[in-house]
Nucleic acid binder design. Structure first.
Length: 498
RNA sequence: GCCUCCUUAGCUCAAUUGGUUAGAGCAACUGACUCUUAAUCAGUAGGUUGUCGGUUCGAUUCCGACAGGGGGCACCA
């Protein structure tokens, strides 16, 4: 992309100069709006002959213009929607000449009364306008056609994925449905906050820059602090810091923030993504399952309230179905998976289509078999509960069955939405697990973490029994909106530089 | 990291088996038009076809490298 002024940019510069020559400052300081476009539209009377008593002052970006000699129609777009503008030479006088100096993309403020055109469209009959920001670079507005059935067909729009993500500002400016997606995202997050706040949770912030990383298995980003002359990691999870706070007596805490994982990018992975984690003292995974279920309902309601997504949000009923991990896998397999040795696991995995099974560890094989036989077939939200210990190094053993842990994951449409445990709070057990991880690390496993002595010290002071949950909010929004690609729910997804 | 496809005007897209001057719609510019709405009508301008190199009398087209992107795979317990 070049910044060389071409003929289009040059024409706009000339208009900018012409505005100034006419005594109009094209970059204003403020504009006292009285109505959003949506509110203005609502003021138009049903009677086509009537004009509103109330004078409106609306502001926004010019999305289209149709000049007909001594009258001009335009559409103004703001955060609420769009409204048509009608300018008449005999009503605004000399100012009408200045319309020639406006372009699609300019930000203007318009004063006038509301009426309906012959075709019934609510319209501002302009008595005056102000230029608030001249647009010097053309935005790729397409043309919109309203079909017979009221649906909007957009022609020649802005659709190149690369440019849309690189120039999200332009994407947002010309594609209202993209704005709606991020409104939905914000509403969902707000609803989740309100839900947790109402339950007595405290929102906290823990370090993004960490001397040790942990709480998940992933390759981290590494960075350097100059003054301290030390390496730091960008967090891969919030978990260990949030549980320190449980030790400290902050009995219900949550954090919504970015985690960073140094891995591939695809339709469900972005190197930085938004994670919600929440921890509740004295709760076990049964309690957390109930909370997660209600939280999903609250989030779904928030997204459903956005008109664009009202029909997209999946309908599901509560309580969510539950499946025991072991029983569902064994049913699919026709035998007891825990009784199989490594060789037998590889053979079963191959049989159901797992590629390169011979290279996989035992826990990995079990997880692959589960994904193939159970996870990928789940459509309605379903809690899968009681994972084998081998798959769940951070969870407390299940009461009455030490082969399993008190862990659940929530799946829907074949994807994981949430992962949760009755948290391990025995510091001796925790130390052993850290040391096992350290041994893996010494053997070259980049994803294994070292011993976090400070975290162990915290746990040794005594950590109450605690339920903990993680929910990836990007993926939750994808599920609720039906959006297929994570970059479509992230404002500025990670890209190579131009 | 691997496979595969794509990159032409500000935007969305064409261009015959390799052929001479790379087209169209929208946007832009000039003009006409006082209820239009993908406004209409007449005219004008706008391109190093991603970059570099090769084959050829001739390359948007064929070949190679590079860059960016899309899709898929791997990775992501």
């Amino acid at each position: 992309m070049s910044d060389d002024p071409n003929f289009v940019l040059a024409a706009r510069r000339e208009k900018l100069d012409a505005l100034r020559a006419a005594g109009v400052e094209p970059f204003a300081y403020s504009f006292a709006r009285t109505h959003s476009a949506h509110e203005a539209v609502a003021l138009a009377a049903d009677d086509p002959a009537a004009e509103s008593v109330e004078v409106v002052r609306v502001a926004g970006r010019i999305a289209s213009m149709r000049a007909h000699g001594k009258t001009t129609f335009a559409h103004l777009v703001d955060g609420s929607g769009r409204v048509q503008l009608y300018f008449r030479r005999d009503e605004i006088g000399d100012a009408y000449t200045l319309l020639d100096l406006l372009d699609i993309g300019d930000v203007i403020g318009v004063t006038g009364v509301m009426f309906r055109t012959r075709s019934g469209e609510p319209t501002v009959r302009a008595s005056g306008f102000e230029v608030l920001a001249k647009s010097l670079r053309p935005l790729p507005f397409g043309k919109e056609e309203t079909a017979e059935d009221g649906s909007v067909i957009r022609h020649s729009g802005f659709s190149d994925p690369e440019q849309r993500f690189r120039q999200r500002y332009a994407d947002l400016a010309v594609n209202p449905e993209v704005r709606a997606t991020f409104v939905a995202r914000a509403r969902m997050t707000s609803a989740i906050r309100s839900f947790l706040d109402a339950r007595g949770y405290l929102e906290v912030e823990t370090p993004v820059l960490q001397p040790l990383y942990g709480g998940a298995a992933a390759r981290p980003f590494t960075t350097r602090h100059n003054a301290l002359d030390m390496s730091l990691f960008l967090r891969i999870a919030d978990e260990l810091y949030l549980k320190r706070l449980i030790v400290g007596g902050l009995e219900r805490v949550y954090e919504i923030g970015h985690d960073f994982r140094n891995e591939g990018i695809d339709r469900t992975h972005n190197p930085e993504f938004t994670m919600l984690e929440f921890y509740e003292a004295y709760a076990d995974y049964e309690v957390m399952m109930d909370i997660v279920e209600r939280l999903i309902v609250v989030a779904a309601d928030a997204v459903r309230a956005i008109p664009q997504y009202t029909d997209a949000v999946p309908t599901f009923t509560t309580p969510f179905a539950r499946k025991e991990w072991l029983a569902s896998v064994n049913t699919g397999l026709g035998e007891d998976i825990l009784a199989l040795d490594h060789v037998a696991l590889i053979q079963r995995a191959r049989r159901i289509g797992v590629q390169r099974a011979e290279t996989m560890s035992r826990p990995k094989l079990m997880d692959e078999i589960f994904q193939e036989l159970v996870e990928s077939r789940i459509v309605d939200p379903t809690f899968v509960i009681d994972y084998p210990v081998e798959l769940s190094p951070l969870a407390k053993p299940k009461r009455g069955d030490p082969r399993l842990t008190e862990r659940f994951e929530l799946f829907a449409n074949g994807r994981e939405l949430s992962n949760a445990f009755s948290e391990l709070n025995d510091p001796i057990d925790q130390r052993e697990r850290f040391e096992a991880q350290a041994r893996l690390r010494a053997e070259g496993d980049e994803e294994a973490v070292g011993v976090d002595e400070d975290y162990l010290r915290a746990m040794e002071y005594g950590m109450p029994p605690t339920g903990g949950v993680g929910i990836g909010l990007d993926r939750l929004l994808m599920y609720l909106t039906g959006i297929q690609h994570i970059r479509d729910v992230i404002l500025f997804p990670t890209l190579r530089p131009e």
